[in-house]
Design a protein around this nucleic acid. Structure first.
Length: 680
DNA sequence: ATCCCTCGAGGTCA
DNA sequence: CTCGAGGGAT
């Protein structure tokens, strides 16, 4: 037999082994019906490894042996999700869940029971995996929902995430329609027993222990060396979709079924429910049985099943309107309030914080909890020395639920907000009608530091590697008084500071230099004007297009802008009419800051104040593109038609919104008319 | 009355 | 990263 024939035989066996392994993966992970023992499975894997090592040229990247192939990374790259990974609204109790159901019926204008899909909410971390022509090409963490970290190499080591989607059913041999591209979303998690075993090993080796399975999974996925991740027993369930080309689903339930045919694991406890009462029954049942599950769940997720209705319901800025997280009650513990501290934020707000006797709540040491303001303290009658019930809201943020009356000894001290700022001794006032107390000293160091922290923060000027500690040190050493001073720093000035070696100083200088060309909206946000957060900053930037126009805007002109009311207008106009602001801005420019407008010249704002509703598919634009164009022109896109809607843009297969528009006599545009309007 | 944005807060991990 | 109170806008 000549060489090529010989390698052909190998190729056949290799191919056969790979298919078998893929088939058993599906049986094991997706169908939960293994047909062979783990030992037999291992034998298949070893045989494949053996053959591949004899013929390295036959190794393909999607071979099951290639789960760990990559070298450690320096750091993770960032990935922008093509469709943002939204978070979910929360229902805290039954009533709120029923409210969710009512709202949906009201929005859809129906009395009929809604069909829901009920899913356990796994306590892990959300990821997105992208398959192109069936091959895993990218995997990322959810991050802030807009951008996440590129953890492709690590996700590839997780055996319940297929490297290649199935192209035919391993049992029936029927072929499966593969989407050209599909972004699937799911949860990576660690089983409770695996978490315990891992911690036992770590204890033996003297490594720090993980607090809970969730942190353990998160820590494992964020390893720079994929060979470490590969040793961690991670698993995944899939439950949602991002961008997809080439397939369509009528229901969420059918989409999950399709996931399984592709070899993507879905949770076997997912249920379909007719109406909200059935959802509640499932919830009760799961709440009673959850402790016997191999993994931790922190609640359930309820989704409208029909994809068509989902679209009609739409999404609001942070979450879809057609899904809600229904969490289990948080674990509560009792502890003592040792003291109440007062912190001062960048706006001068005084926030009381309870210092607690440290207590472990679901694996996490809790030692502080915000008390929000004096009203909150009075309402709950919280005193220093009280015994209190503490929980982590949403299983994250520590919160004092209430006091334990019977724990009172009479020695408790009543807390009163100080009349002088604890940082600068400045006068403290409580503005009429507001719940917060504020320090009035404009030069209060707490405000100054807070402003500078805000200025350098990721979403503002994004000056990386400048920490709170460093800012404090810069300020205390007189290097920096205002934000513009960053752009006059010299490396030599940094070197004498503590913890500032040559390399760190270089990094700081470089990070500052890199921040010199912000977009207008980032820059406006970074200024830290009261009531101007990211959203409002971007509204202002879009509307005015340049700082020169923004800074001369009158209060009246500002108020006329949609979403800008009297308070915000006053705050903005006061900020820019302050002579100190003019000086500060000039100082920024002298220091080399130059605002860039990524879209070039700001678009004309001829659609200002007009509201649009999009329905159906436009041939030339995606939803997001259309939305962008409208917003750039000053218009806004809303999700439901009312008589205040100015235009409904209708594409192919329009939804019920078109009918409503006709009924209300709202202007209806097709794509051509829409384009004309944009150019008009 | 309701929806949404701003702002401030705590803990873990690399 | 995530939550929730409070306030602003409609």
């Amino acid at each position: 037999m000549d060489h090529s024939q010989e390698s052909n035989v190998f190729l056949q066996e290799i191919e056969h082994l790979r298919q078998e392994i893929q088939r058993h993966n599906k049986l094991y992970y997706v169908d939960d019906q293994p047909q062979i023992s783990d030992a037999e499975y291992d034998r298949l894997m070893r045989r494949l490894q053996e053959l591949e090592s004899l013929h390295p040229d036959l190794i393909t990247p999607d071979s099951p042996t290639q789960r760990v192939g990559a070298a450690p990374l320096e750091k993770f790259g960032t990935v922008t999700h093509s469709i943002p990974m939204l978070s979910l609204a929360n229902a805290m109790d039954e009533e709120e869940l029923r409210e969710f159901d009512h709202r949906i019926k009201r929005t859809l204008g129906t009395e009929a029971e809604i069909e829901y899909v009920f899913e356990p909410k796994i306590d892990g971390l959300a990821v997105e995996v992208v398959y192109e022509n069936g091959m895993l090409v990218m995997g990322s963490t959810r991050g802030d929902g807009i951008t996440g970290e590129n953890v492709t190499q690590n996700l590839k080591t997780i055996s319940s995430i297929p490297l290649r989607l199935l192209t035919s059913d391993p049992e029936t041999r029927q072929s499966i329609v593969l989407p050209r591209k599909i972004e699937v979303r799911g949860e990576v998690y660690m089983d409770k027993t695996d978490f315990l075993t891992l911690n036992q090993e770590r204890e033996l080796t003297g490594e720090p222990l993980f607090a809970n399975p969730r942190n353990s999974a998160a820590g494992s996925l964020r390893q720079l060396d994929p060979s470490v991740t590969a040793k961690r027993p991670l698993k995944a369930f899939f439950y949602a979709i991002g961008a997809v080309e080439g397939v369509n689903f009528d229901t969420h339930w059918n989409m999950l079924a399709y996931f399984r045919t592709l070899g993507l694991r879905t949770n076997p406890l997912n249920k379909i429910c007719q109406g909200i009462e059935q959802v509640l029954e499932q919830y009760q049942h799961l709440n009673e049985t959850k402790d016997s599950l191999p993994y931790e769940i922190d609640g359930t997720v309820v989704k409208v099943n029909s994809r068509h209705l989902q679209e009609e319901l739409g999404t609001i800025s942070r979450s879809p309107r057609w899904a809600i997280a229904f969490k289990f009650p948080a674990k509560q513990e009792t502890t003592k309030i040792l003291d109440i501290l007062v912190q001062v934020g960048r706006t001068g707000a005084l926030t009381p914080v309870a210092v607690l006797e440290p207590i472990n709540i679901r694996g996490v040491q809790v030692s502080r909890a915000t008390l929000h303001n004096q009203d909150e303290i009075d309402r709950k009658d919280i005193r220093i020395g009280d015994t209190v019930v503490v929980q982590r809201a949403g299983d994250v943020i520590p919160e004092v639920v209430n006091i334990v009356e019977s724990g009172r000894t009479g020695a408790e001290k009543i807390f009163v907000m100080p009349t002088r700022c604890p940082v600068c001794q400045g006068e403290v006032i409580r503005p009429d009608g507001e719940a917060v107390h504020r320090c009035t000293n404009p030069n209060c160091p707490a405000k100054q530091i807070g402003h500078l922290e805000h200025f350098v923060s990721k979403r503002a000027m994004n000056i990386e590697g400048v920490s709170t500690k460093q800012i404090e040190s810069f300020v205390n050493n007189g290097l920096i008084r205002d934000a513009a001073d960053f752009y006059f720093l010299k490396k030599e000035q940094l070197l004498p500071l503590e913890r500032m070696a040559d390399k760190s100083a270089d990094n700081v200088m470089q990070a500052i230099a890199q921040s010199k060309h912000p977009t207008l909206s980032r820059f406006v946000y970074a200024l830290g004007i009261r009531h101007v957060g990211e959203h409002t900053a971007s509204m202002l930037a879009n509307y005015f297009g340049s700082l020169d126009r923004l800074k001369i805007a009158s209060e009246e002109e500002l108020t006329a802008i949609y979403e800008i009311g009297p308070e915000v207008a006053k705050s903005v106009s006061q900020y820019f009419s302050d002579p100190g602001t003019a000086k500060l801005l000039q100082k920024f420019f002298d220091g080399g800051v130059e605002i860039v407008n990524p879209e070039g010249v700001a678009a004309r704002q001829h659609l200002t104040g007009k509201s649009f509703v999009l329905t159906g598919t436009l041939p030339s634009y995606t939803r997001d593109e259309a939305k962008d164009l409208i917003e750039k022109a000053g218009g806004r896109v809303v999700s439901s038609v009312s008589k205040k809607t100015d235009y409904v843009v209708a594409g192919r297969d329009p939804g019920s919104k078109l009918a409503k528009a006709q009924q209300l006599g709202v202007n209806i545009l097709n794509e051509e008319e829409f384009q004309q309007l944009l150019q008009a």
